[in-house]
């Protein structure tokens, strides 16, 4: 499948952190053709395995969290308005007048209320309301709304995707379903016989809230070594050097105190060998990804983090470069086929 379409299809699914199981059927449908086996674990992570066909081969884990930031309903008000709580870090600057999907008995549409300039008090425009004070307008009467929505109903952003100049696309859910889609395409893009081991793609739940799925998933799979793929900050005029990485420059490989430096060095070499563009991200205190957990799972799992630069993270117009997506696909494909890494990191 076309990489762009794979990214958009997967990112469009509703996987609000904690509610990922609602997307199980869609994930199986979208990814079923690629893997030999798709199972779910006790906490709802989706475990997709493709075997190399050799007995006793090492187990390679590719972790991509599947959840996205979102909200849940906390109150249903007269006039068909809802109040919500955030699940994961939502930027309240993007909320007024935003479009949302409310995933109740049926999926309904809502608009986050905003106050027009004509009706504002002095200086009101400089302030931001906390998310718990925002109102979502559903256009229903309260009675009808209560038949569709209940407290705890998940709420997400409306999936809308646009292609911009230079092969860049924007939309919701690229953190981290773009990486999940790219990893699936990487696994699909190589011959079974070329795999250096049995490859498991862990679509981990709750990275945005509790890091639960990365922890339990890696423990259950118990791989020989792992590559965690997640988004990182794309460079924009308001980011500082070192915090963010250019779009179009390829992947970002993390140099961290809590990931495996040997495996990281081998991954950098692999990128060089294959002519894949990369930047290096220096993250002494941790990676802000599932890798923090993966590395310490069971008896310890050597882990490398490879990221996709993403502008405007945690908004509904996250932006990525399809060139970078292809670079990430190529690097993951090379990683899972690399027999030298498999030899060195097999238990």
């Amino acid at each position: 499948m076309n990489l762009k379409q794979r990214i958009i299809d997967l990112s469009s699914t509703m996987t609000v952190s904690g509610y990922e199981s609602r997307a199980h059927a869609a994930l199986r449908e979208q990814l079923g053709g690629i893997f030999d086996e798709i199972t779910t674990d006790a906490v709802g992570s989706v475990i997709c395995t493709r075997r190399c066909g050799r007995a006793g081969a090492p187990k390679i884990l590719i972790d991509a969290h599947i959840d996205e930031i979102g909200m849940m309903v906390t109150e249903i008000l007269d006039g068909g308005f809802l109040r919500v709580l955030n699940l994961g870090g939502i930027d309240t600057r993007i909320m007024p007048a935003a479009e949302v999907c409310i995933y109740g008995e049926e999926t309904i549409y809502g608009v986050v209320a905003s106050t027009p300039p004509h009706l504002q008090k002095a200086d009101e425009a400089k302030t931001l309301k906390p998310i718990t004070e925002l109102l979502i307008d559903t256009g229903y009467s309260r009675d009808k709304l209560e038949q569709i929505v209940s407290l705890g109903t998940p709420v997400g952003f409306v999936p809308r995707y646009t292609e911009l100049l230079g092969g860049k696309i924007t939309g919701k859910g690229f953190d981290n379903k773009s990486c999940a889609a790219i990893a699936a395409e990487a696994i699909a893009s190589v011959e079974r016989g070329a795999l250096a081991g049995d490859v498991t793609l862990l679509l981990a739940v709750q990275e945005e809230t509790t890091m639960l799925g990365g922890t339990t998933g890696a423990a259950g799979i118990d791989p020989d070594y792992a590559l965690v793929t997640d988004v990182t900050f794309g460079e924009t005029p308001d980011t500082k050097k070192g915090d963010a990485f250019p779009l179009g420059g390829g992947v970002v490989i993390s140099l961290s105190a809590v990931t495996d430096r040997r495996l990281t060095a081998r991954t950098v070499e692999l990128a060089k060998e294959k002519g894949i563009g990369y930047s290096r991200s220096v993250e002494p205190t941790g990676t802000g990804t599932d890798a923090n957990a993966t590395q310490l799972t069971n008896c310890g799992i050597p882990t490398v983090v490879v990221s996709l630069p993403l502008r405007y993270m945690h908004t509904y117009h996250e932006m990525l470069s399809l060139d970078d997506a292809e670079a990430l696909r190529a690097l993951i494909a090379a990683f899972i086929c690399d027999s030298r890494i498999a030899e060195d990191f097999a238990r």
Partner: peptide, 25 residues
């Protein structure tokens, strides 16, 4: 902040997004 826009004139238009620095930063 963070919204999709159309940029242009009466003849030609192009898509864009108003940037919003990630909340983490």
């Amino acid at each position: 902040c963070g919204r999709a826009v159309t940029v242009g004139n009466e003849q030609n238009q192009i898509s864009g997004v108003i940037g919003a620095k990630a909340i983490h930063l």
